[in-house]
Simulated assay, not measured.
Amino acid sequence: MTSPLQQKIKITGPSVVTANRTVDGVVVYRSADQRWSTNLADAAIVRDAPTARALLAEAAADDVGAVGAYIAPVLIAADGTVLPGNLREQIRRDGVSITLPSVR
């Protein structure tokens, strides 16, 4: 498997770096102040491959705080709200998309 840092990065719109927190697996986003946040609105938005590559490299170096960092697309709403850019990221942010059966 090829490391995300070795793959060719294509940016077609606004994107963020996301990963999973090592302590509990929660989805986190890399912020401009080089921290991890559980809030997508705190994520640093990148718009070109060199900036994305730099943010991804910095995030991947923090493998104690989070693992599996990669670049994910986002949408910017007219009011400036940052939204997941595809179904995968929406599910990662919101949780499962079906009602799970109750455990007895």
Rank of each mutant, 00 (worst) to 15 (best):
G85H: 07
A32W: 06
T2P: 12
G65W: 03
T18K: 10
Y70I: 01
L87H: 12
S37D: 09
I98L: 09
R92G: 00
T2V: 13
L56K: 06
G13P: 10
R47A: 00
Y29K: 07
I71P: 02
G68N: 15
V16H: 04
G25L: 09
P73M: 08
A32V: 12
P4I: 13
R53G: 03
S15V: 02
A66Q: 08
A66G: 10
V27S: 04
T18C: 09
T18V: 12
V28N: 03
N86I: 08
D24P: 07
P50H: 04
R92L: 13
V74F: 08
Q7N: 13
T81V: 13
Q7S: 15
I76L: 14
R93A: 13
P84M: 12
Y29Q: 04
P101M: 03
A41I: 02
A43F: 02
A19W: 00
I91Q: 11
D24T: 12
L55D: 08
Y70R: 15
G25Y: 06
V26N: 08
D79K: 00
V96D: 06
L56C: 05
Q7L: 14
R47L: 01
A57T: 12
I91E: 10
I11N: 10
V64T: 12
S37Q: 09
P84G: 12
R35G: 11
A41L: 05
T81K: 09
P73A: 14
I71Q: 07
T99W: 01
R30T: 05
A77C: 03
S102W: 01
A43Q: 02
R104W: 00
R92K: 11
A54Q: 11
S3H: 15
S31M: 10
A43V: 02
S31Y: 00
R53N: 04
I76K: 04
Q6E: 15
D33P: 00
S102D: 04
A60R: 05
G13M: 08
A41K: 10
T51Q: 09
P4W: 10
L100P: 00
R21C: 06
G80S: 10
L40T: 04
R47G: 06
A49Q: 05
L5S: 12
L40Q: 05
D24W: 10
V67W: 03
D33Q: 13
K10P: 00
S3T: 12
T51K: 08
G25V: 07
L56T: 03
R35T: 14
N86A: 10
G65H: 14
N86V: 08
K10L: 15
D33E: 14
R104D: 05
T22G: 04
G13W: 08
V96E: 05
A57D: 09
V64N: 07
K10D: 14
L40V: 08
A61T: 03
V16Q: 07
A59V: 07
V28F: 04
S15D: 09
D24R: 09
L83D: 07
T51L: 03
A66L: 13
R53H: 08
I98F: 09
A57Y: 03
A72T: 07
D48Y: 01
D62M: 12
L40E: 04
G13I: 06
S97L: 05
V26H: 11
A44C: 01
A52F: 02
V67I: 14
D48M: 01
V16R: 02
L87Q: 14
D24Q: 11
R104T: 03
W36G: 03
